[in-house]
Structure formats: C-alpha cells, structure tokens
Design a protein around this nucleic acid. Sequence first.
RNA 1: AUUGCUGGCCGCCUUAUCGCUGUGAAGCUUGCUUCAUGGAGGAAAGUCCGGACAACACAGAGCACCACACUUCCUAACGGGAAGACAGUGAAGGAGAACAAGUUCCCUUCACCGCUAGACAGUGCCACAGAAAAUAAACCGCCAUUUGGCAACGUGUUUGCUAGGGGUAAGGGUGAAAAGGGGGGCCCUCCUUUGUGAGGGAUAGCCUCACUUCGGUGGGGCAAAGUAAGAGCCCACCGGGCCGUUGGUGACAAGGGUCGCAUGGUAAACCUUGUGGGUUGCAAGGCCAAAUAGGUUUCGUUGUUUUACAUUGGGUUGCUCGCUCAAUUCUUCGGAUGCGAAACGGGUAGGCUGCUAGAGCUCAGUGGUGACGCUGAGCCCAGAUAAAUGAUAAGGACCCUAUAUCGAGCUUGCUCUGGUUUAGGGGACAGAAUCCGGCUUAUAGGCCAGUAAUUUUU
RNA 2: GGCCUCGUAGUUCAAUGGAUAGAAUAGGAGUUUCCUAAACUCUAGAUACAGGUUCGAUUCCUGUCGAGGCUA
Length: 138
Amino acid sequence: MEFSASKTNIDASFPEKERLKGKAEISELFEKGSFFYLKPFKIYFLEGSQNEFPRVLISVPKSRFSRASERNLLKRRIRESYRLSKASIIDRLSSNGINLKKIGFVYVEDRLFSFAYLMKTMADFSGSVKRSIKKRNA
RNA sequence: AUUGCUGGCCGCCUUAUCGCUGUGAAGCUUGCUUCAUGGAGGAAAGUCCGGACAACACAGAGCACCACACUUCCUAACGGGAAGACAGUGAAGGAGAACAAGUUCCCUUCACCGCUAGACAGUGCCACAGAAAAUAAACCGCCAUUUGGCAACGUGUUUGCUAGGGGUAAGGGUGAAAAGGGGGGCCCUCCUUUGUGAGGGAUAGCCUCACUUCGGUGGGGCAAAGUAAGAGCCCACCGGGCCGUUGGUGACAAGGGUCGCAUGGUAAACCUUGUGGGUUGCAAGGCCAAAUAGGUUUCGUUGUUUUACAUUGGGUUGCUCGCUCAAUUCUUCGGAUGCGAAACGGGUAGGCUGCUAGAGCUCAGUGGUGACGCUGAGCCCAGAUAAAUGAUAAGGACCCUAUAUCGAGCUUGCUCUGGUUUAGGGGACAGAAUCCGGCUUAUAGGCCAGUAAUUUUU
RNA sequence: GGCCUCGUAGUUCAAUGGAUAGAAUAGGAGUUUCCUAAACUCUAGAUACAGGUUCGAUUCCUGUCGAGGCUA
C-alpha cells in the first residue's frame, strides 16, 4: 500500500509538532470532533486528509487529581504509552482508510492506572475508533 | 545497648534501550540531523510575612484606615532569628514563732512556655449564685449609750420579751474574683486628765559577731501593739505606690527613705501612646505583528440624493409629537452617502523580551557567648509555557513480615538487642512557573550530636 | 498568578461572650386505623480540626484542613 513508503517516518518519537496546542485548535476538537469512552479515557477525535500526522492532546482534570505530582505522573505514562504504540495505531488505521487529524485523551477515572494497563488500552484504540465511526455513519 | 525528647544532616544507586528539553559546535535541505554538555525540592506546597525588580502617582502637613508592640543585637528588610530581662506553669529542695500538719504565700535550682506597651486619660462589660461585684456593701448574726409597747415583782437610773432607729465586718454561706499576703494584738505594776497615759517584762521583728552543707545555726544588743463590743482599727514583716542612690548599653535588679496603702479583672472590648506603611503586581513592563472588522487621510468612480427627509413663522391641541398652510435659502469645478484602491496609526491571535551570575555556591582562615559578619581562593549549578526533567528491563544496597538453620539463655521447647538462607512485600511527602530571605504545614526510612530514664558489663 | 467569603443535627437555617446550643424537616419508637397516609406523643442526633485570651468561647485571636466565588 502507498502509505508504506512513508512508514520510515513513523518511529517512537514524539516531537512538538505532533502535540495539540493553542486555544482555537483545541476548541475545534471539542466542538466538531466525535468522542467515545475507552476505560479509563474519554477520547475525542477529528478526521482529516491523508498523509497528515495526528496531533494529540492529553488532559488529566484537576478535579479528580488535586496533587500536581499525580497529574504529571499520569500524563507522562499516557504520553509514553501513546508514543510506544503510535506506529501500530497509525498503521492499522490507515490500512482501514481512516486518517485522524486530532486526538484528545481525557482521563476520567478516579484511580491511578499502571503503565502496563495503559499499554493494553492503547492496543484497543484503533479498533474502538473504527467501531465509533461505523456507528456514527449508520 | 534500648526507649523518649531536642537540634542538625541525608532522603536510593548502577547499567542498557527508547523518548522530552536548554546551551554550545558542525553540517546542509533554514528547520532538521549529528556530536558534546546541563536538566526539580527540603519543603519546589500553603501564599502567612518581608524585600529586590517594574509601571503609574507624588510640594508639605494633618485626619482616617491597616499592621506591629519587654530589652539589646543580627539583617537589604521582616510579624523572622540570637542573647538576655520579667511574668506564668510544672518538678525538686528549703523556710514556715509558741501541739501537729504544711494548703495559700515566700526563697533557691532546673525544665517548659509567653501576640510581653498602657487598666490612678476616658467609656463599656463582669451572667448565675450571693447581703453586697467596683462611686463598695448590713441578709442571718453580734453590741449596748436611745425611743415606744407588753410582762414580772425585787417598785428601780430594775430585769426579761418585742418593734423602730443607731453602731459593728469576728462567725455563716455564694462566687473565677469579696478589696494585696500571711501573722500577732500577751503578762505585770502605777496614776487619776481611766487615756491612742507612764514604767517594766515576754514574743515576733531589727542590728551585730562567729560558724556554715550558704538553706541556716549559735552568742550579744535593741525592741511592737489604742478600745464598751468587734477588728477592714493598731503593730511589725513581705509585697506595692512615690522620691533619691548604686550596678547594667538596656529591659531590669539590689538596697535606702517615705506613704497604712479601699479604688480588682478585661485592651485576642472600644480606646490611648509610640513606630511603620503611596498603589498595583512578571498575566508587571517593553518590542514585533497575520487574518477579519472598524477608524483617519488621499485618490478614483456620475452609483444614489440635493424644491424637501432642510430652516423659519402661523393654524389645530391645555402642552408635546403628529397633521396642515405659508415664506426663506443653496446649486453640479459644491455637499452628503455608497463602491473600489492605497497609505497611516491603534491593536487581537501569535511570537520575542523581561528570564535567570545571584543579599549565589563550595573550601580555608578569622572576629563574636550566639544569630551573623569580614578576608582570600575556586566554581557556574533548571529555565519549561496545553507547560520538559520520563518510561521499561536487569542487577545491587536498605527496611518490614514469614520460614529454615546456627548461636546464646534457661523453665528443654520455648524465648531473642544476635548471625546466615529462602520467599513475599515496601521506598514517603510531594513537581520549579520573575527571583531571593523567613515562617507554617506534610514526610517511608536512615545517619550524627546533646540530654533523661532503664538494663547489662567493667 | 493575585484576591475575597464561608464552615453549627442527615438537610435548610437560628443563637449580645453567660451555661442543657434552638427551630423546621428527615430518622427511630409508640398512640390512632382493618392497613397506609395525615395528626398527636416521646426519642437519638451537631459548633471542621488544633492551640491561645477570658472566671467562662459557636462567638474574640492565631495556625491548619475543606468548600465556594471574583479577577486577568
């Protein structure tokens, strides 16, 4: 498939241009994007054109974790798990003809989950996106 | 050695892989790659104080408002710290006249602790209880010099009962507090002006000498106390007020004289006195600046309008608006408005700066009881911004629990201040956001010093 | 980042510094009723935590903890 030519670019890095920032950009995701629940996240996404890398937002609400160190720890774990499973996610989505522009991970559980659990969740991510899109179109 | 208290210090380490980010260098595809080298704390937290820095304001003084409040020192400054003073609490010891006891009070030592100016500048408050609660006060009692009534026989300047008035703070009970504290007010003689009289003695107390375990003990000397009743009256002592003296930089302490000395507590009630405080905060402030909308100026364009949607006067109506009638003024090279273009300035998103070399860190010497200061040498040690400093794996050290075994003890199958093995579990509190100095709060575990108690050994 | 306000029964609110902290409602028990509701009677239940000032603290002061709000 044609996307495989650019597959060399998909490594395990997480540079600044793959992060979602700025008030207008984030508002667009939350107002126009769709969402679904995948424990422990509420995941927002917005579809885009081909050959566009998804930009990612990670959010841990202050109301659930009042300690700044807990929020930092969770955000690092989420970012690390996304970074390590990014290649397989994009590969599987593009093979199904889905291109995402923006993704938002919002942590909605009250407990701190371990890194291994988050890795498992990331493995289910692409399948959940596919199901969500099918359900929305139906 | 264990446990407790106080103070100080540390707060996992190593390797590999994959990532994030600052700085420097090189390369080119000018925003990427490669290499090198940095990358959370003792509280980064709470935002409780104090500063630096920045913008704005500002002749000077007073009032108001807010904060602070023993003294001296440290400090850039502080509501912070150090050393002291004084008060309070606790413990131990001592004194505590005349039988014992030793509460309160007093003295000494040690520890802890204090938002510790002023309560004779003024105002307010002090519930309940209690007679009385702040200009003191008479409920039950007690007293007899007074007045009235009744009774008695001893017929009186009588005695008893009772009522009113007067005096009195010993006793009673209340309360957080009852007017500074705890004691004493004894014995004898004389006089007539029967008195706060004179004299003598005793005791407390004071002075002095010797000894001392510094707490006292012993010797000598001087030496208190008015009254019908009662003691808040009198006497001396401690404490206190006022005025000198001495010591201390000072808070204050010691001691002398004088005043019997009713006048409490609360200022974390109002208040008074003294000292200090301009306001806002790095999202301060400075610079660059897209798109869209709007502003100003210029140019272009016959798109629209310019005898009425203008002005003035009259009528209608109580008045206004409205309606209606009449008059006036201007002109195409002009005005108003629309459209298009350009420029200018403001300024949003966004970006850059402020931004990290500092009241800096380490070491050595030195002054000071100490907080801390001074001198010299060396060092550069986070700067993110939807917010970096991480994840995984392996190994090591540490702690806890259980098991097995060795050792020790004896009650001989149990115990442990011990050593080793195996298995399982644990690693806290917590994340820089302009920067410093403090305070407060959270914190698994470990180390050091001082101190108290207990046990063992010498 | 900066600033302000408030914590009282399960809930909503009271209470000059003065004694057993009050009321409504919810809860529990009982009376009434064939049963339930309503009504009536009784009952348990709280000053966020710690320290201080005071004879005495919900109230005054200080510090923690928690909740809510304002500002850019």
